[in-house]
């Protein structure tokens, strides 16, 4: 019967998203400004070197990657940490804890609808525009299906990290700094702001030991390097993501279970 709750929460969060068309619009504008800035930034970077490609990526490759990354950001970022810290500080969390659905599931499915909507409203149009402008740069095939799976898993990894960081908010009032720090770390180490190909060799190796690259780099690789990936490689990439999902959700649940005492014993 849990599934019924999941569907109901997703449904409600989709309707909730629809109520905020304006904020979707603001998000879109913000995204366009961001793209104009990085377009000029990378143009300058490529103009300053003689080669047409840097680290194996041409200017076009880089731009397409970053456009898709920013479109992915708009549907993956659910501002969970803000939400959790607000409901902890206002005390509203008490009502959420008294639902017959575990808190983490209540949050996940209460946000998922928004993710799905933003995917339809921002990612798909961006994807189509990129395809038209680049005359089919992104290969359409099995790799696009892999992208959908990888993006879903990436979203779950992102959720698990947010849930973990949100749980830290139980211990401190200064949640602003924690949230900013999380944003910077996740967006940088995941390859959302700079493609991992541009990282120095050692840093790139280190980054691969962390789950962050599985949020942005892995799904986006299916789009930008689609045909080059063998089926076996594809399954390994998705498998690694799935392993991270399991590990991080487990860690998040345990940390939450331990931290819940802040509310149940200290009263929040």
């Amino acid at each position: 019967m849990r599934i019924k709750s999941w569907i109901a929460l997703t449904r409600v969060s989709i309707m909730d998203f629809m109520q905020f068309r304006l904020s979707a619009f603001v998000m879109l504008i913000g995204n366009i400004i961001y793209l104009i800035v990085i377009y000029n930034l990378w143009k300058a970077i490529y103009a300053s070197v003689d080669n047409a490609t840097i680290n194996g990526m041409s200017f076009n490759d880089t731009m397409i990657y970053l456009v898709l990354a920013s479109a992915q950001f708009t549907f993956m970022e659910a501002y969970l940490v803000w939400m959790m810290s607000r409901s902890i500080q206002s005390g509203k969390i008490v009502l959420d804890l008294l639902k017959p659905v575990p808190y983490s599931q209540y949050l996940l499915f209460g946000l998922e609808g928004g993710n799905i909507c933003a995917f339809v409203v921002t990612f798909i149009p961006t994807f189509i525009i990129v395809e038209i402008i680049t005359k089919g740069y992104i290969h359409l095939g099995i790799n696009t299906l892999f992208y959908l799976v990888a993006a879903t898993l990436g979203m779950l990894i992102n959720f698990a990290i947010d849930f973990f960081v949100g749980t830290i908010c139980l211990y401190t009032q200064s949640t602003w700094g924690i949230n900013i720090m999380k944003e910077v770390v996740v967006l940088f180490l995941s390859g959302a702001t700079v493609p991992l190909a541009f990282f120095p060799e050692t840093l790139r190796k280190i980054v691969m030991f962390f789950p962050f690259h599985a949020i942005y780099n892995t799904p986006l690789t299916f789009l930008t390097k689609g045909p080059e990936l063998s089926l076996a490689e594809s399954f390994i990439m998705v498998g690694e993501q799935a392993a991270w999902v399991i590990v991080l959700i487990l860690i998040g649940k345990i940390f939450w279970k331990l931290s819940e005492r802040v509310i149940t014993v200290n009263g929040g």
Binding site: D16, L95, V101
Partner: peptide, 21 residues
Amino acid sequence: RSQLWWSLPLIESFKLLKDIY
């Protein structure tokens, strides 16, 4: 403090409760 979904018509909160309970 309300447990209802702020931006949605009341009946939607009721329907949600119907399913989660």
